[in-house]
Design a binder for these strands. Structure first.
Lengths: 363, 363
DNA sequence: CGCACCGATGTGAGCGCTAACAATCCCTGG
DNA sequence: CCAGGGATTGTTAGCGCTCACATCGGTGCG
C-alpha cells in the first residue's frame, strides 16, 4: 500500500511496514523462530521466547494476516448470513455469535439479506467462500432459506442456526417447542379452558415449532385445540388478531387466553384489545415470545418466553469450530424460559359469562 | 487446508485448488493476462478478454483474495465497531452500512462492544487494523467512545457515524437537532404552552443533540423551558419520568406535552401515565424519537421522529471510500422526519384545569 | 523504405508468512 | 569415548497473486 521506505513515518510507535524479520533482527534470531513464538510452537527455548516477545512488544509488531492466510488457507474469519437484523431475535443471535467468535479468536463478517430467498442465500454463501472464510453460520428460520442451505455444499463448514428440525445439516437452535409448551401450560394452569394461538408466518420454522409446542401441550391435557390465527410477526397482524378475538368474545365465544408467537404481535393484540374495551388480564390473558426489552413496559407488562441468544451464538460458533476439526457434534437445543409478568391471570367465571358489557372506545 | 491432490474431489464444478494459471492454460494466455481481465485493465484485446472470461466461467474460478490482499495491501473489507446492536438505531445503521458496503464491493466485518469504553474501542480498532481492513466505521454516540476515537490514529481511514458535532474526525450523522425541533414545534403548534423533555443519557451525543433541538425551538418561540427529566433510553426510565410527571400534574402543574428522546422511553411513560389514569393524548401529548416498528402499535400509536438509517449507512461507507482515495468530503447531516400518529393532540383548557379527578388504577 | 512508437502480451520477482527439512548442539548410554 | 537421539534453531521453498519490466508485432511518418 505504501513503499516500505516510508516505514518510519508514523509519529508514535504505530504499526507499519514491520515484518517478521524486523522482529527477528532485534531479537537476534531467525524469522522462523519469531513465527514459532507467535504461533505458540512447543520447541522454543524459554529464554529465546522471552526475547522474541520483548522485541514484538517493543516494536508493536503485528503479523500480516493476509500473508498468513495465503499460506495456511485460513482467514480466521466466520461468515454470518442473516435476514432482518432489525428484529430482536436475529440481532441478539448475532451479538452472541460475534462474542463467541471473538472469544475463539475469529472475526465475524456479516452479510445481511433483504429477503430470505434461495438465490440471495446462495449468493451470500458464495461471497463468503470467495472471501475464504473458515466457516459460515446461517440464520435460516425461513423455509426457502433453509431449503437453499440444503442444496449448498460449500467447501467450508456451514451450520444453520435457529432452524426447526434436523432436516438441515448441522444446526443449533432454541427449543421453540418446549418454550411454547411452557407458555401454554402456564395459561392452562391458571384455569383457562383452552389457549388460542396467533402464529408467525407459515414458512417460518420457528413459528411452526411454537405452534407445535402449543398444540401438543393442549393435546396432552385434553384441552380443545382452537383454530390458529395467522400472523406474520408484525404488531399489525397481532392487532388484527386482537380485533378478531374481540369480535368473537362479543359473540360469547370462550376466548380467555391467547399465546402469540412473538412479543410484537402481542403488542398489537394488546392495543386492539384495549381499543375494544377488553382488559388484560381480567378478560383475556396474553403470553408472548421473545422477551423484548420493551416487554416489561407494555400495558400491561407482558408475560413471555425468553430465549438465550448468547448461548445460541456460543453453540453456533462451537459447532463451526468443531466441524473445522472434523468433529461432528450434535448439540442439544438451547432451552427457553417463561417469564411471568402481569398480562396473565386466572380465568374468571369458569364458563357462563353472559351479559358482559363492551365499551366501544374508538367511536 | 487440504493437500491439493484432493482438488478434484468436489462433486459439481465447485471451487477448489483452481488458480490463475489453470484459467490461463485453458484460455491459452499467460496468468498475467487473466489477472488483467479480472481487474479490468484497459489494454486487453476484446477477443482475448472474451476467451479468458469464458474460461473463468467454465472453470468457476474465483481469485484467492488472500493472495491479492498480500500484494495489494487491500482486503476490500470495512470494519464496523458498534455498541448495543440490540437497540434499534445501531441495528438499522448497521444494516444500511452493510448494504452500502456490499454495493461498493466491500464486505463488512463487525465488532460489537459490550461497553463503549475507550479501551474497548481502541482494542476493536486495533483488531481491525491487524485484520488489515481498508477502513473503519465507528458508531460512536457516547462521549468516551468518541473521545477514544479522537485519540486514535489508525493507518486506515476511520470515520465516525452518528456522533454529535464535528469534534471528531470525519463523521456522518442524522440531524438530531432538526428532528427534535420538528417534534417540539409540532407540540407547540397544537397549542401546548410548553413541552417537557425526557433526555437520554447525559454522555450520549445524540441525546444532547435532541435536547439542544428541543431547547432552541422552545427559545425560538419564547416558550418557557422546563427543567429536563433525565432518562437513559430504557423504558424503565421513561416509566419513572411518567410517574414523576403524573405527580406534578396531580399538583396542578402545567404539564400537557412531553417529548422523549426515544420511543422506548415513550413506551415506559405511556405505561406509567396509563397506570396513573392519565389519558394520552387527552391529558398529555407524547412524542418519541426513532420510529420503532412497534411505535404504531403503542397505546396510543406514537407520534415520533424517524431517522433515515439506510441513508446514514450509505454516507458512512461513502465517506470511508472517499477518504481511501484521499478525498475529504464533509457530508451534510441526514435529515429526520416527523410522523404524526395518535399520541399527540391539541392542548385542552388553555390554563386553569383545577378539580381534575385522577383515578388510581393500581390500588 | 526504415525507424520510432504504441498496444498487447509474457516473464520474473517478490508481497510476508508458514511448512518442511537441514543443521546444530548437548546429552545419554553402551 | 563415541554413536544416537532429542531439543533448538536456521534455511529454503513456495502459497497465488500483482507489479514492473521485457518482448513482440504492427502502424505512422520522415
Amino acid at each position: 500500500m505504501e513503499p516500505e521506505g516510508a516505514a518510519t513515518a508514523q509519529p508514535e510507535g504505530s504499526t507499519r511496514a514491520l515484518v517478521m524479520s524486523d522482529v527477528a533482527a532485534l531479537a537476534g534470531v531467525s524469522h522462523q523462530t519469531v513465527s514459532r513464538v507467535i504461533n505458540g510452537h512447543p520447541n522454543v527455548a524459554p529464554h529465546t521466547r522471552e526475547r522474541v516477545e520483548a522485541a514484538i512488544a517493543q516494536l508493536g509488531y503485528r503479523p500480516n494476516i493476509a500473508a498468513r492466510a495465503l499460506v495456511t488457507g485460513s482467514t480466521r474469519t466466520i461468515g454470518l448470513v442473516t435476514v432482518k437484523i432489525n428484529q430482536y431475535g436475529p440481532a441478539q443471535t448475532m451479538l452472541g455469535l460475534e462474542k463467541a467468535a471473538r472469544a475463539a479468536g475469529y472475526s465475524l463478517s456479516v452479510s445481511i439479506l433483504d429477503e430470505a430467498t434461495a438465490s440471495a442465500m446462495r449468493d451470500a454463501v458464495d461471497r463468503f467462500v470467495s472471501q475464504s472464510v473458515d466457516g459460515i453460520v446461517a440464520l435460516a428460520t425461513y423455509d426457502d432459506a433453509a431449503a437453499a442451505l440444503a442444496t449448498l455444499d460449500p467447501p467450508v463448514p456451514l451450520v444453520a442456526v435457529q432452524v426447526g428440525g434436523d432436516e438441515v445439516r448441522p444446526a443449533v437452535g432454541v427449543d421453540q417447542e418446549a418454550g411454547a409448551r411452557l407458555a401454554t401450560r402456564h395459561l392452562l394452569e391458571l384455569g383457562h379452558r383452552t389457549v388460542h394461538h396467533v402464529t408467525g408466518p407459515a414458512d417460518s420454522q420457528e413459528a411452526r415449532g411454537r405452534q407445535d409446542g402449543w398444540r401438543s401441550e393442549l393435546l396432552a391435557v385434553g384441552a380443545p385445540v382452537p383454530e390458529i390465527i395467522g400472523g406474520d410477526w408484525t404488531p399489525s397482524s397481532g392487532y388484527a388478531a386482537g380485533k378478531q378475538l374481540a369480535e368473537r368474545i362479543r359473540n360469547d365465544e370462550d376466548v380467555t387466553a391467547v399465546f402469540l408467537a412473538n412479543d410484537q404481535m402481542a403488542l398489537g393484540l394488546l392495543a386492539a384489545l384495549h381499543e375494544e374495551g377488553l382488559s388484560v388480564p381480567r378478560d383475556v390473558s396474553v403470553v408472548g415470545f421473545d422477551d423484548l426489552p420493551e416487554a416489561p413496559y407494555f400495558t400491561p407488562p407482558l408475560t413471555t418466553v425468553r430465549q438465550d441468544f448468547a448461548e445460541l451464538g456460543r453453540r453456533g460458533v462451537q459447532l463451526v469450530l468443531a466441524r473445522l476439526q472434523g468433529e461432528d457434534l450434535h448439540p442439544e437445543p438451547v432451552p427457553a424460559a417463561l417469564l411471568v409478568r402481569s398480562s396473565t391471570g386466572p380465568a374468571r367465571a369458569p364458563s357462563r359469562r353472559k351479559g358482559r358489557t363492551l365499551r366501544a372506545t374508538t367511536a
